Amino acid sequence: MKMPGRWLKNEKGQAIVESALVLPIILLLLLGMVEMGRMGNAYLTVTNAARHGARLGAVGGTNAEIAERVQSAATALDPATIVVEIYPEHQRTTGQDIRVTVSYPMSLILPLPTSILEGPVLVSSDTTMRIE
């Protein structure tokens, strides 16, 4: 009769069970924060690269020079996948605005968001400056 009561009061495996229940949630939150940090870094890099390209375009750079400047400003990203769009493409005049848009398709490392979000996440930024 004393055996069942003693077995019910035994709490030796309680911490292991609680850890097994909470650990996946903590890991998912931690990896989500890492992924958001990577996306934030990519966004800041793309924004900075667009700013560099627009500044060069505002002082008279050609489209090829602007694209090269954007590539060199975004060294943390894969230069083969960076897309640079310049508007207007030709015949820029003083006082007119130039807009440089930089896009970067970023692949995620977490398997959960890739099953929810199809394809890479597009990180994009544009900067507009007046031509001098």
Rank of each mutant, 00 (worst) to 15 (best):
L110A: 15
G95E: 04
T101Q: 12
L112G: 08
I116M: 12
V46Q: 04
I109Q: 15
A74G: 04
V70M: 01
V70S: 01
Q71T: 04
T47G: 08
A64V: 01
P120G: 10
E35V: 10
L112Q: 05
L31F: 05
E65A: 05
G95N: 11
I131F: 09
L108R: 03
I66R: 12
I116E: 02
T101P: 05
P88G: 13
V70L: 00
G5N: 09
E11Y: 09
H52S: 02
A74Q: 06
L122R: 13
L31D: 04
W7N: 09
T127G: 03
S124R: 06
V17R: 14
T75G: 11
H90E: 14
E11K: 09
A49V: 03
I26A: 15
M3I: 14
R38C: 08
Y104N: 11
K9V: 09
K12C: 05
L27Y: 01
V84Y: 10
A15P: 06
M3E: 14
S124W: 06
L44C: 08
S125G: 15
A80T: 01
P120W: 03
V34A: 15
M36V: 02
A50C: 04
G32Q: 06
L8I: 00
G61L: 06
P105C: 03
I109F: 15
A15G: 11
